[in-house]
């Protein structure tokens, strides 16, 4: 692992999130300066350039999520100002411009996480706010994104939370062959829960990922890649990165999405305390083979399974001073 390049984010305050688009040739950065910046990769020169910066919200912009490119260049942002805004890139006199096409503002707390649903579910967006409600919106017409309808809403725990209780966070299951599911980090409850749409299209909690010794700061559902099981990673305040394995509890294995079966066998297959500090973020790569975790120790760790199914740390990126060259 090498540091191959860097660029100045040029925000006037701390960055909260950086999100690659579907192809990885665009980046969106958002910050407490209330702005979003869009960066394009200049392949010829190998550099990241930003020509677009816009004030997105009236408070800190906490997260951004790109929609699948078949809906165009569409970005959703959530903010401390309790709103979610859908942005679309358009051309005005051959000049690219990002326009706010819809604002979703019906919550009673900071919107803490936003994520577009996997493409096979259509243009849908899940958000979770400090009030402990997950809401799912859908664009009525994918060629005109002005109208979004809230198609579902469900609480993640018992009673509302406060911002101080920590983050709510969510991650969709991207498998095409199961019922709609997502994992949600439930702030004060110190657990993550699997929510699944039942046969009445109601979202129900069907599993609890327990064993956390603090607030679950982040969750990430691994792309399935034809495996007969699911992997979910959690980042916890107790300093642990955990990987949970979900297998169908019926004999025979495959998750075929049958409505009659709803429970999984959940096992924690990896539990790492290497960060030795609160773990803030976890994320899988696009094929669900590498997990990244980052924490208050100023380090990003990359985890990969060996062929024996053991998860091992393969790389560490440190924010501390040290030899910049590659070490092995």
């Amino acid at each position: 692992m090498n540091q191959v390049t860097k660029f100045d984010g040029t925000h006037e305050d701390l960055i909260h999130d950086v999100a690659f688009n579907y192809y990885g040739n665009r980046l969106a950065t958002c910050s407490s300066d209330q702005k979003i910046k869009i960066w394009d990769y200049n392949e010829a020169d190998g550099i990241w350039e930003s020509n677009i910066s816009f004030k997105a919200h009236s408070c800190a912009v906490l997260k951004t999520s790109w929609a699948h490119p078949e809906y165009g260049q569409v970005l959703a942002s959530c903010s401390f100002d309790r709103s979610v805004i859908i942005w679309e890139e358009s051309y005005h006199d051959a000049v690219k411009k990002w326009t706010s096409v819809a604002t979703l503002r019906d919550g009673s707390g900071t919107v803490q996480d936003v994520e577009f649903a996997p493409n096979h579910l259509g243009l849908r967006l899940a958000i979770v706010a400090a009030d402990g409600l997950v809401k799912i919106y859908e664009a009525m017409d994918v060629t005109s994104l002005a109208h979004w309808t809230m198609i579902d809403s469900f609480p993640v725990g018992e009673g509302p939370s406060k911002d101080e209780d920590g983050n709510h966070c969510l991650s969709w299951c991207t498998s095409k062959f199961t019922a709609q599911m997502m994992v949600v980090g439930c702030a004060k409850d110190h657990v993550a829960k699997i929510f699944r749409q039942d046969h009445n299209t109601k979202w129900q909690a069907c599993e609890v990922l327990g064993g956390h010794g603090g607030v679950v700061h982040d969750v990430s559902w691994a792309p399935n890649m034809g495996r007969s099981y699911h992997l979910i990673a959690t980042a916890c305040k107790d300093g642990h990165v955990r990987i949970f394995k979900l297998t169908d509890d019926s004999q025979g294995g495959a998750l075929t999405g049958g409505w009659s079966r709803k429970m999984f066998n959940v096992t924690c297959i990896a539990d790492f305390a290497d960060h030795n500090a609160e773990v803030w973020r976890v994320e899988w790569n696009v094929t669900g083979t590498i997990l990244s975790s980052s924490g208050y120790d100023g380090k990003v760790r990359l985890w990969k399974a060996t062929y024996t199914g053991d998860w091992r740390c393969m790389s560490v990126v440190s924010a501390e001073e040290g030899p910049s060259a590659f070490q092995r």
Partner: peptide, 19 residues
């Protein structure tokens, strides 16, 4: 804190200081 995200096509890692 330090945060990171994967570049989808290349597995490149964008690492940044996050508030």
């Amino acid at each position: 804190t330090l945060q990171s995200t994967f570049r989808p096509s290349t597995n490149e890692l964008a690492v940044y200081v996050a508030g």
